[in-house]
């Protein structure tokens, strides 16, 4: 199990039962470190309460969602393959358009 804080912002919290943050214990395959891709899939399968298409598209996030690992754009840490360790934070932010 990896203890991960999952955060949902920009309206994504609505897809997760109005939760903005969840302290999750995510199981990992033995011998492998947890990846962001696995954490994301776990969130979809275990936390999502509404319309999965608003969270993911295929095996990645849907267009318009930024993913951050410990407050850093996941593109700087390896995207789907970025490794998630105990105590890490994975944040999903939907881009806003209103004004």
């Amino acid at each position: 199990m990896v203890k991960v804080r999952l955060e949902f912002s920009g309206g994504l919290d609505l897809l997760f039962g109005n939760q903005k943050a969840v302290e999750a214990d995510i199981p990992q395959q033995s011998g492998h470190q947890l990846t962001v891709a696995e954490a994301m899939a776990w969130a979809r399968d275990n936390l999502l309460t509404d319309r999965p298409e608003l969270f993911m598209k295929g095996s990645s996030v849907r267009p318009g969602v930024l993913v951050l690992l410990n407050d850093t754009d996941w593109e700087l840490c390896g995207e789907l393959d970025a490794l998630v360790a105990d105590g890490d934070r994975v944040t999903f932010i939907s881009t806003l358009h209103g004004g």
């Binding site: 608003l54 267009p63 318009g64 930024l66 939907s94 881009t95 209103g98």
Partner: peptide, 24 residues
């Protein structure tokens, strides 16, 4: 940041979703 546009249905608008005036 967003090379692919989000689907139209994923874009909340003030007229539907509402907005607290102070926030903008």
């Amino acid at each position: 940041l967003f090379p692919e546009a989000p689907a139209a249905g994923n874009c909340a608008r003030c007229v539907d979703a509402g907005v607290l005036g102070v926030v903008p």
